[in-house]
Design a protein around this nucleic acid. Structure first.
Lengths: 212, 212, 212, 212
DNA sequence: GATGAATGAGCATTCATTCAT
DNA sequence: CATGAATGAATGCTCATTCAT
């Protein structure tokens, strides 16, 4: 019998990375079941009772591991965020020129969203909540860590005349804005085709948008 | 003494349009003061007591006009959404060719967000809530009404060979994705320059991204 | 049929004074039934559910009138404290010389405790809690208002040579310490005779303790 | 280097007496650190987690030694109570006539409170809790053991005509009431001078209050 | 004896909504 | 139409206690 494929086993991998070791089983269970809870009703509207029932853990265990409901959401957010960062880093570090960086970035992004749609939807939903909560600084650090190397390489290309002379703070929106917008639409059920199906077109449009 | 200008009087205009007549004064007061309440803490976390205190209206009046809290949020959402639609329609209907449509659409969008940042932030925040609530169909109708004419003209240009052969469901993301992404960043305090300052660059990049 | 006598009707009078008017009925009901709840288990251990059940009011009404559990305790404390102050003031203001003041003070005190034992027990129990809570300043003001006139008259007598040369901060303890100590013992069930039965002896001992 | 003096080393002595031997080190640590925990927030509001953190012992150790939280409070109470009893007994047993007994009793009492204010505050706070709990009988026995010899000697003096004809149950209040009242006020921060400073005045007033 | 992760009953408090005036 | 006191279900969270290691 073959192992299950697709988003479930991929999700398990994300939670394993977030709570490694045999000890992390109950913590993992909470994280895994919190995802549908939060996605179904929003972080605020989801109740600890929801999390408890679906995860099969006790209230005390949830509070033992995460402190409070926001703590569960933050842990889930960073588990997803970090996995996404790894996926992007792996692909963008393997290539050299600016165009390839843009293509790999956009492609890695839409592939990740396509592979883990529930987690992607949660990241969109939880981002502002996390940014304004007690882990806001942690988020900003990790955003910096994710995008700084990429920004540096693109800035280099601007100096080399390969990219248009664009304000640095505008580039991220031009590169990932289209992909992000399409992904939001797809996750909300307003678009049919998987984002990965348009990876090439989105990457090409992004590159044309910023190239000299 | 001249009247105050800028976002406050512009907001008043939005609320006047949403609740015309002398009778609409209390309704207007609730809408106007609900905006900071919802933006400060989120729709779910804002309380009727917050709305009551800031608006100076009674609990009964709020329920009389809006039915419930979600009703206030929906009314505020559509007031903002409709104003944005009017702004876009006014500018895009005045031009003929595809490139001009794209430029006017992007420009109208970022200008509107720049002029009414609180309302824009609320629209981003409330969109999913409204889409999943009892007014979801109304939202889908109005989205259709807003974008159908524009989509039609762009689709025409695709057939005329002026635009790249792109899937119809991808075009909106390519056209407005960059602007939307930058606006989100600006509203969240992660970007410095007003979106309107980059209207030209965003419009140009959008056009290059989809042109043949 | 004659009216009921003794502590119950006397208590009702206290609560009437604390929440006058027809409007105050539900507030009064909460106060009246909070007394046995707090006395039975302590303020901390008494639950809102206890108060709700015994008073027959809703949770919302309790919070509407008192804000929180500590608010109920504080309101009850001041209702009792103020009644006790009135009882003391009435009797001490009616006499002239120092010995009579001491006698009336001690007598009024033990009579009040004997007449309202439940309330007296609560005052002993709640005093430190109130003093350390948000109403601590209010308590200190009212203590000052109660004892300042009496202290002034005793200090006058010290100057006149009728009283021993005693430190001002020691006098209250010498005057009321014995009565207070006996009352505590009686309220705790460690003493048999009602404090009022020893009013004369306690007053006489107090006067001998401080007289020149 | 000389040993530290004053209330800390005196407290250590109390805890050593309560938990002698090498085995009693962890028990002693819990008792010593429970005192500030209970004083800061009250017995009910202090948590096992507070005790655990401050004492550096494990939850299991606390339960091993004391059974439950009330057990810690009771053990601490009796450690203090017994030390106070020893201090009183040592001084009152050394004298013969009634006046000397009263003077030594009052003096021993205020000296003890002055030397161990934290413990004294705790005794006032915990007394009712202990009296109503499962150790109530133990407390009543020890109170009897402490005061019976003293009461007997004073009763003898009443018969000898040295003391006023006073009800037996009133005498303890007349003797210690003033001292107790002043000590409570000092411990609560409402009085400036240490009780020991007024030992003579308090003892004299007590004696005058009860002497024939 | 010692440990501390896990438990879950129990609590204070909030807040959308109603409805008598 | 307008009001705001009253309601009580629902929720996040705490914490004493247990027990497997």
């Amino acid at each position: 019998m073959s192992k299950p494929r697709g988003s479930t086993s991929r999700l398990n991998q994300v939670f394993k990375l977030a709570s490694p070791g045999e000890r992390g089983a109950s913590r993992r269970a909470v994280l895994a079941h919190a995802l549908p809870c939060f996605n179904a009703r929003g972080i605020e509207a989801a109740t600890i009772e929801d999390l408890r029932q679906r995860s099969g853990q006790s209230v005390g265990t949830i509070y033992h591991h995460f402190g409070n409901k926001e703590g569960v959401a933050a842990a889930l957010f960073f588990a997803g965020f970090d996995d996404q960062s790894r996926a992007i880093a792996t692909r963008t570090e393997a290539v050299a020129d600016a165009q390839a960086v843009v293509v790999e970035l956009v492609t890695a992004y839409v592939d990740w969203v396509t592979a883990l749609p529930e987690l992607a939807a949660f990241l969109f939903m939880a981002r502002e909540t996390v940014a304004q909560g007690p882990h806001g600084d942690a988020l900003r650090e990790r955003l910096e860590a994710r995008y700084a190397p990429i920004d540096a390489r693109l800035a280099e290309s601007v100096r080399a005349g390969l990219l248009a002379e664009l304000p640095a703070e505008l580039i991220p929106a031009l590169v990932l804005g289209g992909a992000e917008s399409y992904c939001r639409g797809w996750l909300a059920g307003r678009r049919e085709a998987k984002p990965a199906a348009y990876a090439g077109l989105l990457a090409e449009a992004a590159w044309r948008g910023i190239s000299a």
